[in-house]
């Protein structure tokens, strides 16, 4: 059954089986592959998107519950916090392989939008759901603070 989802400000019609997680609707149905699959059980954060501004794991989120919600992905996230995060991420070469970084950036952007000057402890709490096997954690922590000073 076709449903209309509002993704990055655009209405997208998707025809996916009921219960299909948003992650796979984005990746397989809409070919928006910036949002990544990491664990499928909301443990790693690679699939983080914003639902009405809140960082949310899309791998366990049925897409059919999202009609009327504002869905934002790495391809579309914008605003002062996102701009500052991207700028600092690039200037400091924060990512390594980059695979988890869509989720990291979505989580960090949501954190900055909510808290304009996070402490180390705030950052650790907000970001601890996002695993990075390359271990860019120290770089991310430094970069969020740097972005906070600019946003």
């Amino acid at each position: 059954m076709a449903r209309t989802l509002k993704i990055n400000g655009k209405d997208e019609t998707v025809d996916a089986a009921p219960g299909t997680p948003l992650l796979w609707v984005l990746r397989d149905h809409l070919k928006m592959t910036g949002t990544k699959f990491g664990c499928g059980v909301a443990q790693c954060g690679a699939c983080t998107v914003h639902i009405d501004g809140a960082p949310t794991r899309s791998c366990v989120l049925p897409h059919d519950s999202l009609e009327g919600s504002e869905i934002t992905t790495i391809e579309g996230v914008e605003g002062p916090a996102a701009d500052a995060i991207r700028e600092v991420w690039v200037e400091n070469d924060v990512p390594q392989c980059g695979y988890c970084q869509s989720g990291q950036i979505m989580a960090a952007t949501a954190l900055l939008a909510e808290n304009s000057s996070p402490t180390d402890a705030d950052i650790d709490t907000a970001m601890s759901g996002n695993i990075c096997r390359c271990a860019t954690y120290m770089s991310i922590r430094r970069a969020i603070k740097e972005a906070a000073s600019r946003a």
């Binding site: 592959t33 995060i85 695979y99």
Partner: peptide, 15 residues
């Protein structure tokens, strides 16, 4: 600076 990271921050690049 890295040649890949500008793409990564926009969800681009092909894994």
């Amino acid at each position: 600076p890295s040649l890949t990271i500008p793409l990564i921050t926009r969800g681009q690049g092909t894994f």
